[in-house]
Simulated scan of single mutants.
Amino acid sequence: MKFTLGVALSPLDQLTELARTAEECGFTSIGLPDSLFYMKSQSADYPYTPDGSRFWGPETPWVDPLIAAASMSAVTTTLRFYTNVLKLGSRNPLLLARQVGSIANMSGNRFGFGVGIGWAPEEFEWCGVPYAKRGARVDEMIEVIKLVLDGGMVEYHGEFYDFDPLQMSPAPTERVPFYIGGHTGPALRRAARGGDGWTSAMMKFDQLTETIATLRALRAEYDRADEPFEIQAVCIDRHGRDGYQDLADAGVTDTIVVPWLFDGIGFDGELAAKQDSLRRFAEKYIADPIVAAS
């Protein structure tokens, strides 16, 4: 099983050094979160907390995940990066295709595109995009971005996006993997139908195992059961070697962790303390790899 370092809510001036240390310690990837802005009042519940409230405030630090990936890839050589997840619904697919292709090329194909729809109506409306029909629009966005990234002269004529032949060069020299986020039925179908993997928000183990079973059934339905498929998980009630073994046995391929939280260090803790936490975590769980039971 692989380990991804989650860097959400960390001060921005720590990110490149955390990337260097994560690579030295043997982490496979860094997961990069996405938030456009903090609206004073929210018109919809945040879907991943019990009471629908946000666990960050207006002063919480965020960085555009695509810019963060470019910056962190410049100081590393093997570490991978993926958005966890970028909210597609409020953005433009052609602009994103240019950005994703640029990062894939400049990082040496070390970027994976984790995508979701977005939960806040304000992010859509205030960026000039309707909240209505967001799922269908995102499905087209994924098609457009994949089409453009494959290279060559392409055109698209859909319900929401329509353009005549165009080309973006250079295309990535390897296919960019797409990881689909979301816990709803439509999101799981989207992942099973066209994703290279599925990525979770915070989940308990029982919910996670049920979701993995659903994904397996859906992938069989789409005749994709034998294709490689990542399960990237944030599990809030399985930790330690036995816990990570449980996750691997359940089918998780990539566990997203924030080691300094286990050591009582906050998101805004000192960089050196976080680096020490990464080294301790790596000694316990990465130096002696966890392998799923056959």
Results as ranks from 00 to 15, higher is better:
Ser71Glu: 08
Arg80Asn: 11
Arg54Leu: 09
Glu59Val: 09
Leu79Ser: 09
Pro65Trp: 00
Val63Met: 15
Ala74Asn: 13
Tyr38Gly: 04
Gly52Pro: 10
Phe37Ala: 14
Arg80Ala: 07
Trp62His: 09
Gly52Leu: 08
Asp45Leu: 15
Thr60Met: 01
Ser41Glu: 15
Ser41Tyr: 15
Arg54Gln: 08
Thr83Ser: 01
Ala44Asp: 08
Ala70Lys: 13
Gly57His: 10
Val63Tyr: 07
Phe55Tyr: 14
Ser73Phe: 07
Met72Arg: 02
Gln42Lys: 09
Thr49Tyr: 06
Ser43Ile: 08
Val75Asn: 07
Met39Pro: 10
Pro65Ile: 01
Thr83Met: 00
Pro61Asp: 07
Gln42Ser: 12
Leu66Gln: 10
Asp45His: 13
Ile30Pro: 02
Arg80Phe: 05
Phe37Gln: 10
Leu32Arg: 01
Tyr38Glu: 06
Gly31Gln: 03
Thr60Glu: 02
Thr77Glu: 12
Glu59Phe: 07
Pro47Ala: 11
Pro61Cys: 07
Ser73Lys: 08
Asp64Thr: 11
Phe37Met: 13
Phe55Cys: 09
Arg80Val: 06
Tyr82Lys: 02
Ser41Cys: 11
Pro61Asn: 09
Phe81Met: 05
Lys40Trp: 08
Trp56Ser: 01
Asp34Ile: 00
Met39Asn: 14
Asp64Ala: 10
Asp45Cys: 14
Thr60Trp: 01
Leu32His: 02
Asn84Gln: 06
Asn84Thr: 10
Leu79Asn: 04
Leu79Ile: 11
Ser41Phe: 13
Glu59Lys: 11
Thr77Cys: 05
Phe81Asp: 05
Thr49Lys: 12
Ile30Met: 08
Gly31Ile: 03
Ser53Glu: 10
Tyr46Ile: 06
Leu36Val: 12
Ser53Leu: 06
Ala69Cys: 10
Asp64Val: 14
Ile67Thr: 12
Met39Lys: 09
Arg54Asp: 01
Ala70Ile: 07
Asp34Asn: 00
Ala69Ile: 05
Val75Trp: 01
Gly57Lys: 06
Asp45Gln: 14
Leu32Val: 03
Thr77Val: 06
Ala74Thr: 13
Asp45Phe: 13
Trp56Cys: 00
Asp64Pro: 13
Trp62Tyr: 15
Thr83Gly: 00
Asp51Met: 11
Pro61Thr: 05
Asn84Glu: 05
Leu36Phe: 11
Ala70Trp: 08
Leu79His: 05
Tyr48Phe: 14
Asp34Pro: 00
Arg80His: 13
Pro58Phe: 01
Met39Cys: 12
Tyr46Ala: 06
Ser53Val: 08
Gly52Gln: 12
Val75Pro: 04
Leu36Asp: 03
Ala69His: 05
Val75Tyr: 03
Asp51Lys: 14
Glu59Ile: 06
Trp62Ile: 10
Ala68Arg: 09
Pro50Glu: 14
Ser35Pro: 01
Arg54Pro: 02
Val75Thr: 07
Lys40Pro: 07
Phe81Arg: 01
Ala74Met: 11
Ser41Gln: 15
Thr49Ser: 15
Pro65Thr: 03
Leu32Trp: 01
Asn84Cys: 08
Thr60Pro: 02
Arg80Ile: 07
Trp56Gln: 00
Thr76Arg: 09
Arg54Thr: 06
Ser43Gln: 11
Phe81Leu: 06
Thr49Cys: 10
Phe81His: 05
Lys40Leu: 11
Ser41Ile: 12
Thr60Cys: 02
Asp45Asn: 14
